[in-house]
Amino acid sequence: MTNIFRRHTITTMLGLAIAALSPALHAQTVAPIKAVASFSILGDLVRQVGGDRVAVDVLVGPGSDAHVFQPTPSQARLVGQAQIVFSNGLGFEGWMSRLLNTASYKGRHVVVSQGIKPIKAEADDHGHGHGHKHGHHHDEADPHAWQAVPNVIAYVGNIAKGLCESDATGCDQYQRNADAYIAQLKTLDTDIRAIWAAIPAAQRKVITSHDAFGYYAHAYGVKFLAPQGVNTDSEASAKGVAQLVRQIKKEQIKALFVESISDPRLIAQIGRETGVKPAGELFSDSLSDAQGPAASYVAMMRANTTALTQAIQGH
């Protein structure tokens, strides 16, 4: 009887253990949600919120330029198979609606900038080539809203909402991930403000390849000038470059940067004409690869802020 009792007890305990493990085992076997993000920065944000419940494919990868992106047939198939698609909006992905139509996409499309008050693209003060057929005009919205951390906090809320609507079972996990990531973003925003606070406002002047930092400028009190407009597919005019060269000399601007997605020759020309040596590379519309200094959104914002403030201070 004792052996029978022991065998029964062991069997019962094994049964209870398996029952306790079954929800976890079931969670591990659930196929992840198929998501597509339009560009690398947004892909990182979706991964932060989605965690292991979401498989994220990115259309415009690290080091590539979404302004001039042309989807391939394989990418159209990828979108057609997705359960949820995330885009920035504000005119950033001019190709998105055509792609969704081509892919016969029937799933959920989340525009992460929804609810954000856009700023207008900079007026054509320096002869910027906004007239290009793919360019943005000065009365259009600047699409680079992610360059201000508070806007990305709003992005994260929209991402979590979209994932919850697509996968109600995972909603608690998405909300927990979003809350944890928002805490990181709030710390990031505080740190950026503290770093700039140490630099006099009159010295906060930077030259970059194109107008991608308007939201950063508004959020952190920095003046950015650029020979191109908000779209890298526009061309800088000779008149605009000449005006910018005069302004750099007059205001003694020290910080001159090329962006990771831009042709460096224009900034190199401006550097030669002003005697200001380019200070390095900024990441505006794209992350770096995994080994680079901007492999995530948080890393990108910290790397850009460090580069900008060190150049202004002459380090």
Rank of each mutant, 00 (worst) to 15 (best):
A242S: 15
L256A: 09
I159L: 08
A198K: 15
F213M: 05
K223W: 05
V230N: 13
E165W: 04
F257I: 04
K223N: 15
P227G: 11
D179C: 00
T190H: 13
H210V: 09
G162F: 04
W196L: 15
V230S: 14
G229C: 12
I192E: 08
P227T: 08
Q175K: 13
N177Y: 03
T190G: 12
L256I: 10
V149M: 06
E259D: 12
R204S: 08
T187F: 00
A217Y: 03
D189W: 01
R246F: 01
T232P: 11
W146H: 12
A178M: 07
I159D: 06
A183Y: 00
V206N: 06
R204G: 11
A197D: 14
T169F: 06
G162V: 10
L225D: 11
A242W: 00
A202R: 12
V258I: 13
I153P: 01
D167G: 10
A255Y: 09
P200V: 06
C164D: 13
K186S: 12
Q228H: 10
V230D: 13
K249R: 14
R193I: 00
I159Y: 02
A242N: 08
D233W: 02
G214Y: 07
K205P: 05
A238R: 13
R204M: 09
R204P: 08
Q228E: 15
S166P: 08
P200C: 10
V258S: 14
D189Q: 02
R204W: 10
I253N: 04
I253K: 04
I248A: 08
G214H: 09
A178Q: 09
N177A: 11
I195R: 15
C164W: 00
Y174I: 12
V222L: 07
P150Y: 01
Q247I: 07
I207F: 12
K239W: 00
I195G: 03
L163T: 10
G240L: 07
A238K: 10
V245I: 15
S209E: 11
V206R: 07
L225E: 11
A194F: 07
T190D: 13
R246N: 14
H210C: 11
G240Y: 06
H210M: 05
A160N: 06
A168E: 14
A148C: 09
V149C: 03
Q247Y: 12
L163A: 07
A201E: 14
P150D: 01
N158E: 09
R176F: 03
S209R: 08
Y220L: 08
N177G: 09
A148L: 05
D191F: 00
C171A: 15
S234H: 03
T190W: 00
V206F: 10
R176E: 14
V156I: 15
K254H: 10
Q203F: 01
A148T: 02
I248T: 04
Y181R: 01
A212G: 15
A242P: 01
W196S: 02
Q247S: 04
A180E: 15
T232M: 06
Y155W: 09
V149G: 01
R246Y: 02
W196E: 11
N177C: 06
G240E: 09
Q147A: 09
G170E: 06
R193G: 14
A198L: 05
D233V: 09
A242K: 12
D211S: 14
G229L: 10
A219T: 06
A197N: 13
Q184A: 07
I192H: 07
V206P: 04
L225K: 06
L163I: 10
